[in-house]
Design a protein around this nucleic acid. Structure first.
Lengths: 240, 240
DNA sequence: AACAAGAAATCGGTATACCGAGTGTTGACG
DNA sequence: CGTCAACACTCGGTATACCGATTTCTTGTT
C-alpha cells in the first residue's frame, strides 16, 4: 500500500503524543504540509482523523491547533480509565488466549532504569502496549479502540513531564498483580486490581498536576470548560 | 456557517441510522455525490467521519459500503453499554443540574402509542435523547461522546426491525425508575437501575436476534469476526 | 487620537483534473 | 480447452486552482 495519508497521519500523531509538536500550537494546512512534505489533501485528511481522536483542534475557516492540554481533559480521561480498565481487565480474564497471556507477562515485567531518561520513554510505550493488549484481549474491538484512544491522549501528559519516574517499581508491581489476576482467570480479582491500579495512578498524578499547572502554564489551556471545583473533582469509583 | 460538508454528513448519517441506506450496500464517492448533490470533496470528508463512527466502511482504492450489521457488533455495543451506562448514570446522579434533571423526567415519561408505527420511531429518538442527556450530565465530554456514539450505532438495529415495540410500557417504567434515582442523587441506586435496564434490554433483544438473523439475513454480515460461540457470549456484569 | 470603513491578506472549503492501484476481461498461446 | 499475460475500466488518492469566510491592516474622517 502506497498512500501518503496514512504514514503522514502516523508520523504527526507520534509527534503530537510525544509533544514534539507543542500542545496549543496553531498551524495551517500549508505549514504542516511544508513540515512533512505533503500536499494539502493528505494533510487535511490526517488532521481530520486527529481531530476525531482529540489530538488536533479545527477552527472552521480559521486554522488548526495541536489540542491543548487541560486539567479538565486530564480528569475526564482518568475518570474514563477508572470506568473502562477494570471492565476490560475483567473481560480479558475471561477471554484472553494463551498467547496474549504470555505477552502480558512479558510486558508487565519490563524493568526500566530510573537513571536512564530514554528508558522512561520506553516505559511509557511498554505501559501503553500492556494496557492495549489487555483491552484487545477483551475481544471487543470497539471497546478496545476506545480504551486505546484514551491511553494515547493521556500519554501526552506524561511525555510532557508529568512523570511517574519515581514510582517505577510500584507501577511494575501493580502491573504484575493485575496480569497475574488475569492469568489466573480470576475475573473479580482482575477487576479489583485494575481499579486499584488506576485509582493509585490518579492519586499519584493529582499531586504532580498541582505543580505542573503552574510550571507548564504555557501548554496548559486556561480551561473555560471547567469550574474551579474541577481540581477537587470527586471520582465516582465503582464498588468492587 | 455555510459549508456543504457538515449538513451532508448529518443527512447521510441520519439515513444510515434509519436504514434508509441499506446496511452492507456498497457505493462510490461519485454515486453518493449524485444522490446528495455534492461534489467529491465534501462527500469524502463525510464518509471519513462516518467511517470513524463505525457507520461506513472504506476499502482502500476500491470503494465504500454502508457498515453491515453483525451479531458481533450488536454484542460488542451492548457489552459496552453495560459498562458505560451504569457509570454515566452514577456520575449524572452526582453532577446533573436542575435543568437536566427536569428534562430527563420529561423524556423518560414520553408515552408512545403501540398502534402507531411513526410513534415507534419517535420513541427511538426520545430514547436516544434521554440516554444522551444522562451521558451529558456526567459532565465528562469525552465520555459522553463515546456513549452517544454507541447509542447511534445501536439504533440501526432497532430501526431495522429489531423492535422493542411490545416492551413499550416496561421500557418507560425502567426509564422512570432510573431517572428518579438520578433525581434523588442516589448514586448507587442510579448505577443499579442502569445496570438493570441495560441487562434487561440485552435479554429482550437476545431472543429477537435469533429470529432476525434468519429473517434479515441479507443485511446481516456473514461475520468472519466471530466464532459460533458468540451468540451465547457471556456478559461480564459488574457487581453492584 | 479614536474610530470606522474598506482593502488586502490569510486560510480553510470546494471543485476538478490527473494519477496510480486494484479488478475483471479478453485473447493469444501452449 | 485451459492458462496466463496484457489491457481496459473503475475508483479512490493526490495535487491544485479557485472561491468565500474571517481577520487584520490601512487609511481617511471627525
Amino acid at each position: 500500500m502506497s498512500t501518503i495519508s496514512e504514514p503522514l497521519y502516523r508520523r504527526v500523531r507520534k509527534d503530537i503524543v510525544e509533544c514534539a509538536l507543542t500542545p496549543g500550537k496553531s498551524f495551517s494546512e500549508a505549514e504542516l504540509g511544508r513540515l512533512y512534505h505533503a500536499s494539502r489533501t493528505p494533510v487535511r485528511e490526517a488532521c481530520r482523523r486527529l481531530e476525531h481522536e482529540g489530538l488536533v483542534r479545527i477552527i472552521p475557516f480559521r486554522g488548526y491547533s495541536i489540542a491543548p492540554l487541560s486539567v479538565a481533559e486530564f480528569h475526564d480521561l482518568q475518570e474514563m480509565q477508572l470506568i473502562f480498565e477494570p471492565a476490560t481487565a475483567a473481560l480479558a480474564a475471561e477471554r484472553a488466549n494463551q498467547k496474549e497471556l504470555d505477552e502480558m507477562r512479558e510486558l508487565a515485567t519490563y524493568e526500566y532504569n530510573i537513571e536512564d531518561k530514554n528508558s522512561y520513554h520506553e516505559f511509557l510505550q511498554t505501559n501503553y502496549q500492556l494496557h492495549s493488549l489487555i483491552a484487545q484481549s477483551s475481544k471487543n474491538k470497539r471497546l478496545s479502540d476506545v480504551v486505546s484512544n484514551i491511553h494515547v491522549r493521556l500519554m501526552r501528559f506524561f511525555y510532557l513531564g508529568l512523570s511517574f519516574e519515581s514510582h517505577g517499581p510500584t507501577l511494575v508491581a501493580e502491573h504484575i498483580s493485575l496480569v497475574e489476576a488475569i492469568r489466573n482467570r480470576d475475573i473479580e480479582q482482575a477487576r479489583h486490581m485494575a481499579t486499584d491500579h488506576i485509582s493509585k495512578a490518579i492519586e499519584r498524578s493529582a499531586k504532580l498536576l498541582m505543580g505542573a499547572i503552574r510550571f507548564g502554564e504555557a501548554v496548559f489551556e486556561a480551561s473555560p470548560e471547567m469550574g474551579d471545583s474541577q481540581l477537587a473533582r470527586k471520582y465516582i469509583v465503582p464498588r468492587i
